[in-house]
């Protein structure tokens, strides 16, 4: 029987591709799913629950396990067995939790001998851990040979601000930054407590000179309207920021003020 060449070539090609496909389907099938966000703010959580959550993040969203091993010398990064106990001795005057948090947020600040400075900030994209997740992972690391005493307040308020990575800057407020600067220094009286670049010098509240760089527009807008709901920046007294700007500022003044604050980078 004469089989046309086209048929033979087609069957041969399908056989070749079928073999590759069969092999690819016969190996372990691993999907990469987007990580789920963990939020512990406002809720009660026991140290054991916190450590468990931290371990989960260590292995998944944090991608720590790709380089760090526990009980095994890593080629790219140090063995973390006993790090909770060692951490307090790494830098004089720095507690275990402070050292661990610094390692997560500024990994290059202290390098373990023999390892390169390759670790990324874990609160920035693409890893992008939020404050709750940083808290949990710090607790997990403390649990490896140390005592779990880290609290959510130990994690800087600015940490994890850009964690979601989300959409790029596309929020275009109709506000006028110039008019907003006038509100900042005038009707809003923000200048009484805050410094904003060249405007003001007060240190009662946090310096806002780079607020747009370290906080999201949503945070800035929420903070003006309901400051207590978003917590107090570590090191500053609680309850000082007035909660009535939502009533005293007009809608235009409000968006002008936000537009001005978003220029502070």
């Amino acid at each position: 029987m004469h089989v046309p060449v086209g048929l033979k070539v087609g069957a041969f090609s399908l056989l070749v591709m079928g073999s590759y496909t069969y092999f690819a389907n016969s190996i372990p099938q691993i999907e990469s799913r987007p990580p789920e966000e963990l939020s512990l703010e406002g809720g009660t959580v026991t140290p054991a629950q916190l450590v468990k959550a931290g371990e989960q993040i260590f292995k998944t969203k944090g991608t720590c396990e790709v380089c760090h091993k526990i009980g095994e010398k890593g080629m790219r990064a140090p063995d973390l067995a006993g790090v909770g106990g060692r951490a307090a001795k790494r830098k004089p005057g720095v507690s275990a939790k402070q050292y661990l948090i610094e390692s997560l947020l500024d990994p290059g600040a202290y390098l373990v001998e023999g390892y390169p400075n390759i670790m990324p900030r874990v609160d920035k994209p693409p890893i992008g851990l939020n404050r709750s997740e940083l808290w949990a992972i710090a607790a997990f690391l403390e649990s490896l040979g140390g005592t779990v005493d880290v609290t959510l307040d130990d994690i800087p308020k600015t940490a994890g601000a850009a964690a979601a990575g989300g959409a790029p800057a596309e929020l275009k407020l109709p506000g006028d930054p110039k008019a907003g600067e006038a509100v900042f220094a005038g009707k809003g009286a923000c200048i009484a407590c805050h410094k904003a670049g060249k405007v003001g010098a007060a240190q009662v509240g946090p310096d806002l000179s780079q607020i747009a760089k370290i906080q999201t527009p949503e945070y800035i807008m929420g903070k003006i309207l309901n400051p207590a709901a978003l917590g107090t920046v570590a090191g500053y007294p609680k309850g000082v920021m007035p909660p009535m700007f939502g009533q005293t500022l007009t809608a235009k003044e409000y968006v002008d003020l936000v537009a001005f604050l978003l220029t502070l980078k």
């Binding site: 591709m17 079928g18 590759y20 496909t21 092999f23 690819a24 389907n25 190996i27 099938q29 691993i30 999907e31 990469s32 799913r33 987007p34 920035k124 994209p125 693409p126 992008g128 979601a164 990575g165 989300g166 959409a167 790029p168």
Partner: peptide, 23 residues
Amino acid sequence: GVMRDTSVDAVTPALGYAANVIT
């Protein structure tokens, strides 16, 4: 690290699925 995929397809499929599509 800049613009996240928030669609229903944000899951990166396994190799078997990818191989089926490629074939």
